[in-house]
Amino acid sequence: MIVMDFQTASFLTAGILIVIGLYGVFFVDNIIKKIIALEILGSGVNLTLISICYNKYIPIKLPNMVNFAQYSAYPLTQALVLTNIVIEASMLAIMLGVSIILYKKYKTLKCSVILKED
């Protein structure tokens, strides 16, 4: 049985999410599903960012402030994730808006129809 520590497992999960997202973007022929796949891809990247915060000294009890730096989870990438979530959400909002309009035109969500090059 393979034993891996928590952080590596977390990175593995993130990698799998990224691959699932990429699969969805390139191989699924439905605009909404593509957008959902983009969300999954983004979550994978966010999980990678979050996993960097992991500090293996996380204690059960709060330590005194002197040793705080040694015990606390790293805060930098947590803040970056908050930023990235908003960025993704706004991109997706624009894409959903355009897909509403193209759906109204073609009455279908198939990418092969609505995004066909002329």
């Binding site: 990224i18 990429l22 891809l41 983004g42 994978g44 993704e88 991109m91 894409m95």
Partner: peptide, 12 residues
């Protein structure tokens, strides 16, 4: 739309 779809992938 095409630009943004690819854009989110490349940006991510």
């Amino acid at each position: 739309l095409r630009y943004l779809l690819i854009g989110v992938v490349a940006g991510s």
